[in-house]
């Protein structure tokens, strides 16, 4: 499912809202989550999961073209931890077929 498919799906379920509003809402939700992470704030959605930042230590790397050594500075990367409900839901098919 892509972002535009998600927008379409939500627009179908929210018939009273112009699809332009739904599109704007979806983009705003994603922006709010990105902006929160950009300022080091966590995003916590119960039943879905949480987004946090993980720190990557500075390290020695190499320029793959020239082989030259470069020092890569430490940086933060986004991390997602699925919530309990999401973890259970993606596993449901397997547990059923195993029984």
């Amino acid at each position: 499912m892509t972002k535009s498919e998600l927008i379409e799906l939500l627009a179908q379920k929210q018939e009273h809202l112009p699809s332009r509003d739904v599109e704007l809402a979806v983009k705003t939700i994603l922006e709010l989550m990105s902006d929160a992470l950009a300022t080091g704030e966590r995003v916590e959605v119960r039943g879905f999961g949480s987004f946090t930042l993980h720190f990557r230590q500075p390290r020695q790397g190499r320029n793959p073209k020239t082989g030259e050594q470069v020092t890569l500075p430490g940086r933060h990367v986004p991390h997602f931890k699925p919530g309990k409900e999401l973890r259970l839901m993606v596993n449901e098919d397997e547990t059923k077929s195993a029984q």
Binding site: T2, V45, V90
Partner: peptide, 24 residues
């Protein structure tokens, strides 16, 4: 909208479908 946003992403994943949110 907020509830449905996360519900729909979750059900797509529950159905074995990956979700691609460009820019995110």
């Amino acid at each position: 909208i907020v509830e449905m946003f996360f519900d729909e992403v979750r059900s797509a994943l529950a159905q074995g479908e990956e979700v691609k949110l460009s820019g995110f």
